[in-house]
Computed example of a mutant assay.
Amino acid sequence: MGAGKSTIGRQLAKALRKKFYDSDREIEKRTGVSISWIFEMEGEAGFRERESKAIDELTAFDNVVVATGGGAILSEENRNWLRSRGEVVYLSATAEQLYRRTAKDKKRPLLQTGDRRKQIEALMAQRNPLYEQVADIIIKTGDQSIQHTVNDVIKQLKKTKKNFSLS
């Protein structure tokens, strides 16, 4: 959450001449409502069910870059689809970087109550081991430019022949 999956993914797809999909935007298109609304009405479990369906469908396409939501990695089913259907790029950032990048964002349901910094740290403790388990490539996003990060990803992907997803 806040690592740059959508931004980097969009630029990466453009550079590689592939179609770009953001699983959260696809869910919003399909339902006609925001992710926040889905969380409010269906809870996290309802959202995760929709997310898994979208990831299953999107990862079945060829010549695509798929940016998943930050919590998509929690589902074993999602991890299996990502791992078996493409190259998984984990865009890694520190808790402080994520805090700065999401500080003013009001659209992230899991960061709307309580201490945002502590919530980010708790999510990272839960998710990072899963990201590292699934990732074929790990890129530290740091403070470098978007283009620098895209170039790093491309450099690593040139060593592979599979499709890939950003996680």
Rank of each mutant, 00 (worst) to 15 (best):
A125H: 08
A3S: 15
E44W: 04
T94A: 07
L166M: 05
I27H: 03
K53L: 15
L58M: 07
E76R: 14
F20K: 04
L12C: 02
A103T: 03
E51L: 02
T102R: 00
H148D: 15
D56G: 10
G43Y: 02
I154N: 10
S145R: 06
E57F: 08
R85I: 03
Y21F: 15
I35G: 04
T160H: 12
I120A: 12
G4D: 07
I38D: 03
K162V: 04
K104F: 02
E76G: 15
K104H: 14
S167T: 09
T31N: 11
K158G: 13
A54I: 09
G32R: 05
A125P: 01
S167C: 15
A93E: 07
N128E: 15
V64F: 01
R108S: 07
L74T: 15
R30D: 12
L111G: 07
V89W: 06
A103N: 03
K19W: 08
R117T: 05
Q156P: 02
A125E: 10
D62E: 15
Y90D: 02
I55L: 15
D22H: 03
L74N: 12
G69W: 07
G86Q: 01
G32Y: 05
G69Q: 02
F20Y: 15
I146G: 11
E51G: 04
T31K: 10
K161C: 03
L110C: 12
R83L: 15
D24M: 08
R30E: 14
S23V: 05
E51M: 11
D136C: 02
W37Q: 14
Q112R: 14
G142W: 07
A125T: 12
V150W: 08
T94D: 08
S145F: 04
M41Y: 14
R116Q: 05
S36P: 06
L166G: 00
E87I: 12
K19A: 08
D152H: 13
K14P: 00
R100N: 06
R10A: 08
G2S: 06
L111D: 05
Q133K: 15
N151P: 00
G70F: 13
D143F: 09
V150T: 14
E51I: 04
Q147H: 11
R108A: 10
P129C: 11
I146K: 13
S52F: 05
I38F: 06
I55H: 01
I154M: 14
K158F: 01
G9V: 04
T160S: 13
E57D: 14
W37R: 13
A60M: 02
P109K: 10
N63K: 08
H148W: 01
K140T: 13
A60K: 11
A72W: 10
I35F: 01
E40N: 14
W81G: 01
I137H: 14
V66W: 01
R79C: 03
D24V: 08
T160L: 13
D152F: 07
R79G: 10
L58P: 03
S52P: 01
S167A: 13
N63C: 05
R83A: 08
E132F: 02
N80L: 14
E51P: 08
A45K: 09
G2F: 11
S167Q: 15
G114D: 13
K161D: 13
T149G: 06
